[in-house]
Amino acid sequence: MIKHKVVLLFPAAVVEQPFLYHLVKDYDLFINILRANINPKKEGRLVVELSGEEKNYEKGVRFLESGGIEVLPFEQQMIWNEERCTHCGACTVMCPTGALEMSRPDMIVRFDGDKCVVCEHCFKACPARAIEAHY
């Protein structure tokens, strides 16, 4: 079993097709939707956790890509800009999962992407705007 957090970008032309149904039915993948959104241009964005047999996962990703969907690794999409961060910790009390955490006693903020559920609460809680979403 493997588990990956990915950002799926759906072009407007395919946004009405039931891709997730096929991931479950044809590729036996577990899907955990963390965030879903369709913008006014009808482009879709999903942040999901996909898990299953490695072979099935790879086939599933190929299936998505053949349908015109961009599959992007989550770690490259949600970025904590360490250079910009002042380690003030304002985000750490807003983050519900402990993905952004103050390490003690050195009082340095650390980001663990595995724990992030893309609630986006940190975006505006950060005075230095050091958390960037690239999706």
Binding site: C88, R104, M107
Partner: peptide, 23 residues
């Protein structure tokens, strides 16, 4: 405050510094 929680009115409350100790 630096430990990460204080007790206020009997409740454990998480703390954040705003001023950066490491800086």
């Amino acid at each position: 405050l630096k430990s990460g929680t204080i007790t206020v009115q009997g409740k454990e409350v998480p703390t954040a510094p705003l001023s950066s100790y490491s800086k």
